[in-house]
Design a protein around this nucleic acid. Structure first.
Lengths: 340, 340
DNA sequence: ATGAAAGCGCTAACAT
DNA sequence: ATGTTAGCGCTTTCAT
């Protein structure tokens, strides 16, 4: 394994010159640079990451804090990881997966003080998240995916739930629907103040008013069974119902199954729009789900870019970037057929 | 940020003593150790990962080579990543995600010679995989998830496809099925020599013989549409068909949809067993899919353990560990009802 | 059982 | 534009 000293000797220059060729932090004459580069190539030289990190106090690695609950990651999360990883690589950084939940404060403290990571991406952010407090205290640069209660002084990248709900409702209204339901996350998460649940509930109300249509919000579990119950309840509470928005993919599939068994035709009797859904899952359903596709990979890339920017600038001001889900019309939404 | 020198001074010992307390590579009297530990605690000392890595030539990080194709990772892969990450953490290691496909030789070369990673886990291994050749040449320790054509001298951890297929067929036979189809991966992947496709095809033939039943193998695309076509073809070629094994989850859902539309009752008319399927996806279907659940997270953990073992022992002998998928009977398999 | 000291391979002042 | 050199914070011989 050739070292920088080897390269310097071979190129007939000093080690610092070699170093500066690598980092580009001071002007080097073309002739010298060429000689150095040639020497590197001849020796198959690769800088030692550890030595670099030690001397520069930068590892060029960012950590992705992701609670690994045992159950699988959804497609959205996966896409996020992918997007973040790619964006990091393009900037010459590496991405390290760190299974750190809100409760593993010690783990995180160790990670952050080890100086192995230059900064953090924090996934699955809770409204009140201890990881945030800790990272702040330790003065580690970080970017949140999602938002805490009070985002002052934080950098957040999140789905634009307001916009997403509004776009979904607008899609149904445009098709001629006048009574729609919104099947939200569970009552429990709503009560616990889970951000997306609360924000979408409010956005739904607002959208109903804006579009002057009626509708009901039904919280339910994020399961197929939950979806089944929710659609039954929704139809009871609002018999004229012709459209439904669903927050959770599993619930969406449950709704399709329930409607089918009730002898109703999707999309002609009832349209279903799934929110924050990945393409894969949407295609699993039949008919394929009309959905608001979550910008998973774009979110990951955006978050990474924000973090790297902050690392470079030493910037720590409040920042917020919201990306809406994009409507993909597939087979479960249509103009409702006239009743009777 | 306290350094080892600070700790040494505070404890009234030399730096080397502090170091040995940390690494445990030489005996320390209890009294001294206690003083050192106390000093560390008082100073909130955390060893600097970079300095450690530079001096010891070990980063305590392993890389996970995972081609990020843009499309989402399946639940099995996700579980694998989770399992590997957890296992690494338990052993005091970190896991770094490296988006490196078979074609990114340069990327991999850089990664491996940078000395940032102690070893590699290689996912989505091709029958002939250039990453394997490269890692071997660079003498980087690594473990494959999957198998190459010739596994001599390699460490592999993989799904036991033979066992899995046999278990699935046995399940159907035991229920009384006498004519079953196997819906495999696409003809293209079969032709290209994709390992799992070839191995399961062979295992299916063997299982048919062993159980003295008839059956057909139908290759198809890994999509719902592919599944639909496949089941039509299978029923044409084998009208007495009462059971079907499916290799791909999407195809499995397509098959269910097609059968339903053809007016057939699952599982009473036709049983469906999905292979290498995750629980989440199985539950998405209605009825929930009887499936051979892939040991994703166990695979990840096993692979990590093998790699760490090799790092510790400097061992490089051939090694193979196969884990079967586990049968989970859900709603799509049953004793076939008598025809006519 | 403990200490002293020589690196590990690089970056970044400080020189010229 | 280039060279010299003092660290970065730790591990690990070599001593005692």
């Amino acid at each position: 394994m050739a070292t920088m000293t080897d390269v310097a000797r071979r190129a007939g220059v000093s080690v610092s010159t070699v170093s500066y060729v690598l980092t580009g932090t001071r002007p080097i004459s073309d002739a010298t640079r060429d000689r150095v580069l040639a020497a590197m190539a001849e020796l198959d030289y690769q800088p030692n990451a550890m030595a670099r990190g030690l001397a520069s106090r930068r590892s060029n690695i960012i950590g992705l804090l992701l609670p690994l609950t045992g159950r699988a990651l959804g497609a959205t999360e996966t896409a996020f990881v992918t997007g973040a990883t790619e964006a990091a690589r393009e900037a010459g950084y590496h991405l390290m997966l760190c299974p750190v939940g809100t409760d593993d404060s010690d783990e995180l403290q160790t990670l952050a003080t080890q100086r192995l990571l230059d900064g953090f991406l924090v996934m699955e952010v809770q409204l009140s998240d201890r990881r945030v407090d800790l990272l702040r205290k330790l003065e580690s640069p970080f970017v949140l995916i999602g938002r805490t209660e009070d985002p002052t002084g934080l950098a957040c990248v999140d789905i634009d739930f307001d916009q997403t709900v509004d776009d979904a409702v607008a899609h149904l209204v445009q098709l001629g629907h006048e009574a729609v339901a919104y099947v939200n996350h569970s009552a429990a998460s709503l009560a616990s103040g889970y951000g997306p649940a609360k924000r979408t509930a409010a956005a739904f109300e607002a959208a109903l008013r804006r579009h002057r249509i009626t509708g009901v919000m039904v919280p339910t579990d994020d399961t197929a069974t939950g979806g089944r119950q929710a659609i039954r309840e929704a139809r009871e509470r609002c018999p004229r119902l012709t459209g439904v928005l669903v927050m959770n993919e599993n619930a969406a599939l449950g709704i399709l199954a329930e409607l089918r068994e009730a002898g109703l035709d999707v999309p002609w009797d009832i349209s279903v729009v799934s929110m924050v859904t990945s393409e894969v899952v949407a295609d699993l359903a039949s008919p394929a789900l009309t959905a608001m596709t979550s910008p998973g990979s774009a979110l990951g890339a955006a978050a990474t870019r924000v973090l790297l920017k902050r690392l470079a600038d030493g910037d720590g001001t409040t920042y917020e970037e919201l990306l809406p889900c994009v409507l993909e019309v597939r087979g479960t939404s249509a103009r409702p057929r006239k009743k009777k």
